[in-house]
Computed example of a mutant assay.
Amino acid sequence: MKHRILITGASGFVGTALLRLLEQEHSECEVFAFGHGNGHLNPIDLMDRDAVDAAVHKVRPTALVHLAAVAAPADARNAPRHAWDVNVTGTMNLAESVMRHAPEARFVYVGSSEAYGASFQSVAGPVTETVPLRPVTVYGVTKAAADLMIGQMAYDGLRAVRCRPFNHTGPGQSDAYVIPAFARQVAEIAAGKNEPVIHVGNLEVERDFLDVRDVVRAYAGAAMLNPNADPDCVYNIASGQPLKIRHILDMLIAQSGIDIEVRVDPEKLRPNDIPFASGDASKARDWLKWKPLVPFEQTIADVFGYWQRVCKAR
């Protein structure tokens, strides 16, 4: 049977990358893209249960990739009630509709490594999917709550796959995130638009970064899993090779070829910052046949090149 894949959050950074991948490598699939801000997509409000129900009933997908969320941690921190509504209640509305109208569909829930939170500090090395979810941020707790909810619904019959991606970036990501924020500043300096000073937060933390093009390959693979797979399917999507934020900034400055002063801005320091976060993706390698392929140096060059083009166009 031809795959019918419904994607929520299709207008976002990751959704756009997933649509591109499916078009290029899985043209045999019929894709239904739901999102906002693009005339080619179907708008949907996850808080509107009737609208969600109607959409799922109409599409009757064989798989669904749920990307729609309040995804920027700062946005969740500034509007926690909205983050809970979208990330938890919206996810519940969608999952319930799938169980009613497309019970055979694979439901790919895209969670977050931020759900692990304080567990990173009590485990030596990369975490596995079995460590406790101990979130310390608003964003992390909403993603953990939805993750656990989908896991429970799997035992009621939802054919769920839960993905816990670690940090990922790529060309086109908003500068609300650390790497594009650095890249934008460095590109503006290189273009002569700003003085050679970059303002940063905590550079000593270590994070497990991936290229978005690798991450969406994992989601596509999860969507095409055998629908009779174990109901407790949960996968870290990670490199297992954490990098200091300082090292990433140094890579971007090296791309510019100029001398840039680095200044710490207290306003950019995050509360509850976890010093070290890395994931063990052995399960994804074994069951999804997935591993990261894009060298991080290529990711950094592509992100910097994107912001150079943005600065030139302004």
Rank of each mutant, 00 (worst) to 15 (best):
K143E: 05
T62W: 06
A191S: 15
W290P: 06
L67R: 02
A191P: 10
G125Q: 02
L203R: 04
I248W: 03
Q24R: 12
P266N: 07
M99Y: 01
A51E: 12
M224D: 03
V141K: 08
W290K: 04
W84P: 00
A223G: 08
I7D: 14
A102Q: 00
R106T: 14
P43W: 13
N78E: 12
A183Y: 14
C311G: 01
V98K: 05
I300A: 05
D156E: 14
P266W: 04
E104C: 07
L249G: 07
A79G: 03
Y219L: 12
H101K: 01
P171Y: 07
K268C: 09
E30D: 14
V178L: 15
I258R: 14
P266H: 05
L6V: 04
N93K: 00
H168Q: 08
V205G: 09
M92P: 00
N272Q: 11
A190D: 13
V98I: 14
E206N: 00
R164K: 04
P132T: 03
E28G: 05
S278I: 01
L249S: 06
R20W: 03
V264T: 13
S174Y: 13
D250I: 01
G157P: 10
R164D: 02
L288Q: 08
A69C: 05
G257W: 09
N236T: 06
T169L: 05
N78I: 01
M47G: 15
R246P: 02
L225T: 02
R314D: 12
Q308I: 05
L21D: 04
D156S: 10
D273R: 11
L67V: 02
M224G: 06
V98T: 11
N38K: 13
D232P: 00
T128Y: 09
P196C: 03
D232Y: 09
Y306I: 00
S256K: 11
G157E: 00
L64Y: 05
I253L: 08
P271Y: 01
T142Y: 11
V86F: 08
I237M: 13
V88F: 10
V161F: 03
G279E: 10
A238K: 02
T130R: 03
E195V: 05
L67W: 00
G305N: 06
P103C: 06
F182W: 11
G257A: 02
F34A: 15
A76Q: 04
A10M: 03
R263C: 13
E195Y: 07
I189K: 05
L203P: 02
Y219N: 00
K58V: 07
E96G: 11
M153K: 06
D302V: 02
V161M: 06
A79V: 08
V65H: 10
C233L: 11
M224C: 03
T8V: 10
